[in-house]
Simulated assay, not measured.
Amino acid sequence: MALFSNHIFLLLSLTLAFSGGATPLSRNETGGARGDFVISPFKTVVQVFNRLYGTSFTIHCKSKDNDLGTHMVGPKGNYRFKFRANFWGTTLFFCRVSWAKGWTVFNIYSTKRDIGRCQTYCKWEVLGDGLYGYRQNDKVCDLKLPFKNKP
């Protein structure tokens, strides 16, 4: 019986060691359903900066299970949220950004695209011609999404 208990303990220890200490999270932190397991114990921060200089924009972000609400971001302001990606690699947040001259809908975070791109910090900037995305700790834009013009 002691040998069986030791094997169970070893199996659990190895599972936790190789899974990064994955733990179930509440619905608000995962972007998925209650009970999803995370890839690792760190959170990802997504931050969107207003670079429209003197003009505000509106942002509304959602996942399959979470509506983060509509937010007005003033000049020189920013909007941010954080979460933990789920174990299955299906975490997806999408947003609609609009301002006086344009709008766009886009995936602000997708585990499949971003797990190696901006694993713990995803930076975006709203400029007059579109939305710019940056790799983690990089000052060079690697994603650009143009705005659709408002009538």
Results as ranks from 00 to 15, higher is better:
W103L: 06
E29Q: 09
F93R: 06
F83Q: 04
G35W: 04
T55I: 04
V45A: 08
F57E: 03
S56E: 11
Y109S: 06
A100W: 12
F42M: 05
Y109M: 06
S56M: 09
T30C: 10
H71W: 08
N28P: 11
L68E: 03
K101M: 10
G31M: 05
C61P: 02
H60Y: 04
V48R: 10
R27I: 13
F37K: 02
T44H: 04
S26R: 14
F94A: 13
D67A: 09
S110F: 01
M72W: 08
F81I: 02
T111H: 14
V38R: 02
W103Y: 14
R34L: 12
S40P: 01
F94W: 15
G31A: 07
P75E: 11
P75F: 03
S63H: 02
T30E: 02
F106C: 02
V73L: 09
R27L: 15
K76T: 12
D67K: 05
K101H: 12
G54S: 03
F37I: 09
R51F: 03
Y53V: 12
K43L: 04
N66I: 13
G54P: 00
T58F: 10
L92P: 08
T104P: 02
R84G: 06
C61L: 03
G31F: 01
R84L: 04
G35P: 03
C95W: 00
V45G: 04
F49L: 10
D65P: 08
A100L: 05
T30Y: 05
I108Y: 00
N86A: 06
P75G: 02
K62H: 07
T55Q: 01
R96T: 13
L52F: 05
C95G: 08
H71Q: 06
A33P: 11
G89W: 08
S110L: 10
S56R: 10
V48L: 14
G89K: 11
G102D: 11
T90R: 13
K101Q: 12
S26K: 15
C61R: 00
T58V: 09
G69I: 01
